[in-house]
Design a protein around this nucleic acid. Structure first.
Lengths: 359, 359
DNA sequence: TCAAAAGTGTTATCCTTACACCCATGT
DNA sequence: ACATGGGTGTAAGGATAACACTTTTGA
């Protein structure tokens, strides 16, 4: 009964000669400390491949002959799927994440499956990563992977607008974009490049769209401002300008995908509360939302909207150590899930000037 | 240089004994004919496995000993990833989709990766499907897969509210939900079931949320109103009540995932235009949006909002064969992509009564 | 006393929603 | 004539965004 049948799905998708597909699971684990959004990273020097493995793909000669150049870069935690023990992908991920980092995450959501050729894989094998987004409160981590909490925006510094437009935009990114647009060979290509840059980075009248994280990352990658440690892409091709902290393999792309997804969800699902303890002040909630959206919010209206949407309820308790007047502690009102078709935190941009006007 | 290295990602994720992972690609190809949303389906009798293959999973004895019971059910098109020829997953999918159905899709977006154990796989292998959502205008299809355009809501009839609440809700679904809630063994479990049903199906004051397609499907699956043809789930367990047309394997779940994603995108990305020809009347646009959202919209306001958001521009041409007054033809204004951070079609629910008031 | 944070009140504007009504064509 | 679909006007109500101001603590 378990043999002798013909299963085309299997038969056609599997091997071709000795080339197969290998599958792994990645987790982008997010927490917020104060106003710093962090992701969990590990250093896995052995995992890094800095040379093309599929020799068809080797278009440029590798410049680093040793293994030091890219070795030791951090990446997001990775774990195998145990085809026998793990009933679902999600359970498999929870299992090895607990083993490697000691974290029991709450919220977990599948993000994307990365499978372009050129990802690391031995002897021509294809390597697939199913990436998950996990939200947690920041906790002590320890385990075989030697995990650390790294500031998310250290990898994507152009995404943090909380203190105004990031300096790196004017200094490196905009000039590079202009060059890239100007160097188009045809009018049509010029127009296409111009439009892409406008949409992704909000040039010339087009507003900056905080959600287009992946568009921005991919454009920067194309013009060579961020490098990925994948075969066929020599990190020296960035001409000496390398913005943001690099990561192993294509992990920075995964991390950008996670930020885009999370920013998108923020406004229509109450995900921010997954990053907070059971009770919190409204300032803490605002800090979390600001940290993730990368924008400063208007304090008074934020509070009013959160309260009048009945996202939270008073606990009656008071937080004393605020640095100012004691603040009331709130908790998330689960009932909103029932009351409203889609509910999240309103993201209304605010200016630094609107903080307070004493005097 | 291509050998002798240690690649932990590969080494740890691959085989354990002789158990491996097999990967395939699925496409949910969507088109709208008139007011009927359709998906492309194929019949692949050979692919169907109606018995547990991983013997650990066999919890109930199979009742159908032949191969006739589930064989011949339709499914969404499937194709293999060619690890050698296909540079990216997306290109691989485009390749075999063209081969099998003759379709060259435009819009293509990765949907989800399905990998629970229990999916079809020979000799205990794990089977992974990376599913994609594709949008196209309805075109002639032909090819090795014998593809046909099937009405989407024939699989998920409770999702079509265009002519009021679907009869199947009151007739089968609500009673079954009530039973399920009532049969909870503890107060806590009762409350949880009650809340889930409220959120998914909008019972008792909670509004129906058109976007929660997957919540609804999964709840129906859990209470046994829809069956999946996977090992460990006997289709007879639905006690004779089986709502909606069944599909092979877990393809109905994939189809529900696609509908949820598409409904979500509708309001913040201009995806509806991918399903329309270059020029169209506003009624056609409205029909497409209604078909996908499953709701009737308010005609006058729909038109006003589409126009004042400058989503479309006049072509000057006139469509004569409307059945009524000739209508102006419009085209999508690509410039909105630059002008607005997020733009889609406003979904404002309308009542049948608001159509016209000739008196 | 002052900085820092918590909180309240008020207003103009825009968007959403609803309703009423007229126009042009085919049968 | 009337059914069908195209198309315009307008007004109430609510959400948004901006601004001004008061309160309570710790250093």
């Amino acid at each position: 009964m378990t043999d002798g049948r013909f299963y085309p799905e299997m038969a056609t998708s599997g091997n071709r000669g000795d080339v197969g597909v290998t599958v792994g699971l990645n987790a982008i684990v997010v927490a917020v400390t104060g106003d710093v959004p962090r992701i969990l990273t590990v250093r896995r020097p052995l995992e890094i491949a800095d040379h093309p493995l599929d020799s068809n793909e080797a278009e440029t000669a590798p410049e680093h002959s040793g293994d030091g150049a890219l070795g030791g870069r951090e990446g997001v935690p990775f774990g195998p799927l145990d085809p026998v023990a793990d009933r679902t992908l999600e359970l498999g991920l929870r299992r090895w994440l607990a083993e490697q980092t000691g974290i029991e995450v709450g919220y977990l959501e599948q993000l994307y499956t990365f499978g372009d050729r050129g990802r690391v894989a031995p002897v021509g094998n294809r390597f697939l990563s199913v990436a998950y987004l996990a939200l947690t409160r920041e906790v002590e981590v320890s385990g075989s992977g030697a995990p650390i909490w790294a500031p998310w925006y250290s990898y994507l510094p152009w995404e943090d607008w909380r203190d105004g437009p990031p300096a790196i935009l004017g200094k490196h990114i905009f000039p590079a974009l202009q060059d890239w647009i100007a160097s188009a060979s045809t009018d049509r290509s010029w127009a296409q490049r111009h439009e892409r840059a406008q949409i992704a980075f909000g040039l010339g009248g087009t507003p900056w769209n905080r959600n287009r994280v992946l568009d921005r990352y991919e454009l920067l990658f194309e013009i060579g401002l961020v490098a990925e440690a994948v075969p066929g892409t020599d990190s020296a091709s960035t001409h000496g300008v390398e913005i943001g902290r690099p990561m192993a393999l294509d992990h920075r792309r995964i991390v950008a995908t996670a930020l885009e997804r999370l920013r998108g969800k923020l406004s229509y699902r109450p995900v921010a509360f997954e990053l907070l303890p059971g009770t919190f002040t409204l300032l803490r909630l605002q800090q979390v939302v600001e940290a993730l959206s990368g924008e400063r919010l208007h304090k008074q209206n934020f509070r009013r909207l959160v309260e009048q949407n009945r996202l939270v309820e008073r606990t009656g308790d008071i937080e004393v150590r605020t640095g100012g007047r004691p603040a009331e502690l709130f908790r998330f009102r689960r009932e909103v899930l029932r009351e409203r078709p889609a509910i999240g935190v309103v993201i209304q941009r605010g200016r630094l000037a609107t903080e307070t006007h004493n005097g």
